[in-house]
Computed example of a mutant assay.
Amino acid sequence: MAVYVSPKGARAGSAGTFIAAAGNFAVMAPGTNIGAATPISATGEDLEDTLASKVENDAAALIRSIAQTRGRNEDKLEETVRSAASYSAQEALADNVVDLITEDLDDLLAKLDGLTADTSLGMVVLETEGLEIRTIEKNILEHFLEFISDPNVSFILLTVGGLGIVVEMFNPGLVAPGVVGVICLLLAFLALGNLPVNWAGAVFIVLASVLIMLEVVVAGFGILGVGAIVSLMVGGLLLFTQFGDSSPTLPSINVNRWLLSGTGGVVGLALVYVVGLAYQSRKEGPPEKASVLTGMLGRVTGELAPKGIVMVGNETWTAVSEDDSVIRIGEPVEVRSVEGLILTVFRRIDPETQENS
C-alpha cells in the first residue's frame, strides 16, 4: 500500500526507485532522496552499448507504465533511468514523483488515514488512525545466526573446528576435541553459507591445523610450525577475498587484521613452547627412565658400530657401545648409562656361551 523512504539520510535508489513508484502511496521522510535508477551490470560497471540500450529502454518503459498506473510524473521518473536523475524529498513532492512527506511513522499513519487506495479488491478507504504498530524483532535463532555470520567469528570457528578434528585424528579416543571440532566446523559452514567465501582460504586454514599437529607429533623443529602460521595467515586473508569484479551492492567483508595477527601470534608462541619442550625432552630424555634402565639387559637389533639399535625391556632404543667396539646383532648388552634418548651399553658375556667355550 504505502512505501516509506525513511529515516533521514535514507535513499530509494536503483531498484528502490521502482519499488517506491509502484506503491499506492509513495512517502518520503525529510532529508531522503530517490532516483539514480540507470541499469548497470551486477559488478557495478557500465553495460556494453547494445545491451545497455536494450536494458535501459526496457527499464524506462517499465517505470513509465508504473507512473501511468499510479498517476505520477512519467517524465521525471523516466529521467531517473535515462540520466540517473535523483530528487530530494521536497523536489520529488513538487514534481509529483511521490505523494507525501512525513516526519515519522506516527505522522505517516495520520496522513494516510481516510485516503483511498485502488487495490485488487477495489477501492479501499484507509483507516490508520489509532492503528496498533507491531514491531517485528529478531528471534534468538536469528540473533545467533547473525552472530556466527560475523566474518571474524566464522574464521575462529573454522580454525578451532579444523584443529579439533585433526587433534582427534592423531589422538583417537580423546573424544572432546573431536566433538568440539565437529560442532565448530558445522557452525562455520552454516555461517560461510551466508557469506561470499573464497574456499581456497578455508583449505589453507585446515592445512594450518594439520601442520600444527604434525609439528607436535613428529617434532619438525619449527619448519612445520612456520608453515602452519603462514598457511593460517594466508587463509585468513583469502577467506573472504573475491578476485575479479565484485558486486557493488555487497559491503566489504574480511577478517579483522588484528584478530588475524593475534591468532597467528598465539599459535606461534604455543608452537615455540611445544617445540622447546620436545627439544628438551629429546635432549634430556625421560628422567624416571634413567634410573630404571641403568643395569638392564638388552639385545642388539641393529649393529653397534659403535652406534646402533638395541631392544631393552621390549622398547627399541638408540645406543652406543661404551668402548666404541663393534657389537653385532643378537649379542646381549647391559645398559651402563642414559643420556637423553641415547643409551650407553657394553657387551655382556652370555653365561651359556662362556661355559661352552
Rank of each mutant, 00 (worst) to 15 (best):
W258S: 13
G236P: 03
N254L: 10
Q280N: 15
G262A: 12
G244I: 11
S246K: 15
P286W: 09
G302I: 04
R257E: 12
G235Y: 03
M233R: 04
T294V: 14
P251Q: 06
S252I: 12
V272M: 14
I253A: 09
V272T: 15
V255I: 11
G236R: 09
Q280H: 13
Q242F: 03
G235H: 06
N254F: 15
R257Q: 14
W258R: 07
E288T: 09
L232I: 02
G262V: 07
G276K: 10
S246L: 13
L293A: 04
K307M: 12
G244W: 05
A319Y: 02
P248E: 04
L259V: 03
G264V: 00
I253G: 07
S261Q: 10
T249H: 08
K289S: 08
V255F: 09
E315F: 06
G302E: 08
V310M: 06
L304G: 05
G313C: 01
L293V: 04
V275D: 12
G295W: 05
V275P: 02
S247T: 12
G295Y: 03
N254D: 13
I229D: 00
A305K: 09
F243I: 12
G235F: 03
V320L: 01
P251A: 06
G285M: 05
I229K: 00
E284T: 10
G244E: 09
L224W: 08
G225C: 06
R257S: 14
E284F: 10
L297P: 02
G244T: 08
L304K: 08
G227R: 00
G285L: 05
A228M: 02
K307N: 12
M233C: 06
E315L: 09
S281H: 15
A278S: 15
D245P: 10
L304A: 02
G227L: 04
L271W: 01
L250F: 09
T263S: 14
W317E: 05
R257L: 14
L250T: 14
G298T: 02
P248Y: 03
P306Y: 06
N256H: 03
G308M: 01
L237Q: 04
G298P: 00
D245S: 11
E288N: 07
D245N: 11
G262Q: 00
V234C: 00
S321G: 04
E322Y: 14
L238M: 14
L224V: 07
L293D: 02
F243E: 07
V274D: 04
L260G: 09
G264P: 05
G236V: 03
L259Y: 07
G265K: 06
T263K: 01
L232F: 06
V274T: 12
V292Y: 04
L238Q: 09
S291F: 05
P306I: 07
F240E: 03
G264N: 08
M311F: 01
L232H: 01
V275A: 15
E315K: 12
L259W: 08
S321F: 01
G244Q: 10
W258A: 11
E284S: 09
L237D: 01
G244M: 11
R282H: 15
Q242W: 05
G276D: 08
E315A: 07
P286T: 07
S261Y: 15
V230C: 01
P287A: 09
L232A: 03
V226F: 13
A290T: 05
L277S: 14
G313A: 01
